[in-house]
């Protein structure tokens, strides 16, 4: 036993241990920080999971709200060539046809133009100008879609009507809508194409130039083959945009609710039909419009998923 001020070796050892290990204060601080760590991770994970919840509830609510129309109309919803709420005929064919035709026209115009801009920006543009032109194209993507619609209706449609009256008797129609959509998606396709073309290592370009290739031959035989999937992804991304675009199309498509199997005639698209009719719709009509929304969502989801799949494949392979 210890007496007075003399200290046994065991007690001195214990004292030193206590000095080395965490004090009460430090221990609570550690515990608190550990707790904050847990809370932080759980909160952020909760927010991330909201993305899945969002997708689930979007699909779920549209299926639920469109179900009455689907059970009432059955397959005729997809085959009937006329949408007439006053006689309870809800055929989605004109809208689906219009959506596909306008988007394809847009893609057909936008692909060559976007490729041209991307080649210009990456290969031949002087570096000083590159930034300016790139920014201008990107600003085009920032213009709200309703502005495109107003411009299309007040400027483009009258112009087409007065200069090509045989093709555009009314000015508005599927091709006019396709043209507006093309202008809207050019910036998207251009941005993706330019970015994937920039991922090609410059040593590959220089080697090809060193062999005596012209700029076009370098682009055609060296750059295009190595970024094919990425460019296709960009094009499909643009297609996804065009399929779901609403306001710009609503103004210039003509809003004809009968199936008009021409390319230049007036028609409607899924998004335009919903925008035009939904606020006054009720009962079966509302359910049918929500079902139409589900169809559009499924189409665009499939298209966009494909685009992402192809883009991710390029990004994984190419060093950026």
């Amino acid at each position: 036993m210890t007496t007075g001020s003399s200290v046994t070796p065991q007690a001195a050892e214990g004292d030193r241990m206590q000095k080395l290990s965490a004090s009460e204060h430090e221990r609570t601080a550690l515990k608190r920080n550990g707790l904050v760590d847990r809370v932080f991770e759980i909160t952020t994970r909760g927010s991330a999971l909201m993305v899945l919840l969002l997708l689930g509830t979007i699909t779920g609510s549209l299926v639920l709200a469109g179900w009455p129309a689907l059970s009432e109309l059955g397959l005729s919803f997809f085959t009937d060539d006329r949408w007439a709420a006053n006689v309870n005929r809800f055929g989605a064919l004109p809208a689906i046809y219009g959506t596909l035709v306008t988007s394809l026209i847009a893609i057909a115009i936008a692909i060559p133009v976007s490729l041209g801009i991307a080649i210009f920006l990456t290969e031949i543009c002087p570096p000083k100008l590159r930034r300016t032109i790139g920014t201008m194209v990107e600003l085009l993507a920032g213009v709200p879609s309703i502005i495109y619609g107003m411009w299309g209706m007040e400027v483009l449609a009258p112009f087409l009507q007065s200069h090509f009256p045989s093709v555009f008797p009314a000015g508005t129609g599927l091709t006019t809508a396709g043209l507006i959509l093309a202008i809207m998606i050019i910036p998207f396709i251009t941005a993706v194409t330019r970015d994937v073309m920039n991922t090609v290592p410059s040593i590959m370009r220089e080697s090809a130039y060193g062999l005596g290739c012209t700029t076009w031959e370098v682009v055609r035989h060296v750059i295009f083959p190595s970024v094919k999937a990425g460019m296709l992804g960009g094009v499909i991304l643009g297609l996804g945009r065009a399929l779901g675009e609403t306001m710009a199309v609503t103004f210039v498509i003509g809003n004809n609710l009968f199936l008009n199997a021409t390319v230049t005639g007036q028609g409607t698209s899924i998004a335009a039909l919903i925008a035009n009719q939904f606020s006054e719709a009720d009962g079966l009509q509302r359910s049918a419009l929500l079902l139409l929304g589900l169809v559009l969502f499924l189409i665009t989801f499939a298209v966009l998923a494909l685009a992402r799949f192809m883009l991710n494949r390029t990004n994984q392979r190419a060093p950026s």
Partner: peptide, 26 residues
């Protein structure tokens, strides 16, 4: 995380009118 990233990329360019219908429904 990969799944969430993928879904997020798709929602990034989902048609805005669908979002309107969704909020209308819920």
């Amino acid at each position: 995380a990969s799944l969430i990233r993928f879904i997020n990329d798709v929602l990034l360019s989902a048609p805005s009118i669908i979002i309107g219908l969704y909020i209308y429904a819920v």
